[in-house]
Design a protein around this nucleic acid. Structure first.
Lengths: 132, 132
DNA sequence: ATAAAAATAGTAATGATTCCTATTTTTTAG
DNA sequence: CTAAAAAATAGGAATCATTACTATTTTTAT
């Protein structure tokens, strides 16, 4: 119900997120947005990230590292998490929506969706490991 | 290195977990194990759950509800999370390991594994909704 | 221009988890 | 069997991400 009102802070947050492909955390967003508006509060960043995620303008990513990441790209795609450096990287891959069928085959409830992410060593860390 | 020593508490925790198919949280484990040993501390429960997960005797599940769940069944299988009641249920389904190939096709790092869980309405909640 | 609704800044509170330390338990070796 | 070393425990404090609270400011509809 609550009508949405414009907020400069919310715009800044969304604009910043759109410039990044590395799925920053709330804290990273805070540190960066503060460069333009040093008075913005961490609570405002959290509130707006949650609001934007709730209305579907951004995506909240939970990749198991205990911190939420955010993504301005809401199109369906998957992520890779490097177990070495922790970076979260977009994967270009064919759809795996077929797994919903497989999962629902012997289940009596209704499966609405799935959450998947992949992990391993990213290209960069692999290179660094060879050198040492 | 640190040699593992026997601990009654650790046994109790593992034994309790083996009796449950509902993937309890640390707090649930604590509340239940306390029935047999009222002096056990929450820290001990956490430490042992982490230790058991680290040595592969149990599995730690992160299904995005902000709390870790634990599973005595370490065989590869998938979970369903009910968005209505929050319950975490085992899925009997064919392997979807093929998605690793798909994910790695256009990626320059090394994909070691994946984390997947499904969500929707469980059979029980679906029934309850029909009645109301 | 003004009043209602929504948003903010700043700070306190929460909740899951980890850390700390004095004491107790387990294990190894004599 | 006993004693010392190593590991584990209980209990409580600390941490860290996130949410809640509240007085003030901003937005927006009239």
């Amino acid at each position: 119900m609550a009508a949405l009102k414009y907020s400069r802070q919310r715009e800044m947050i969304k604009d910043f997120l759109m410039t990044r492909k590395d799925h920053p955390t709330a804290d990273i967003v805070y540190m960066n947005v503060r460069k333009q508006n040093p008075n913005i509060s961490l609570g405002t960043v959290y509130r707006n990230l949650t609001l934007l995620a709730d209305i579907g303008e951004i995506a909240r990513l939970r990749v198991g590292d205990g911190v939420d990441h955010f993504d301005a790209d809401t199109s369906p795609h998957y992520h890779f998490v490097c177990t070495e450096c922790g970076s979260v990287i977009d994967l270009e891959m064919d759809s795996i929506e077929g797994i919903l069928e497989i999962a629902g085959a012997h289940f009596d409830g209704h499966i609405a969706g799935h959450v998947t992410h992949f992990y391993g060593i990213c290209g960069n860390c692999a290179k660094l490991k060879q050198l040492s």
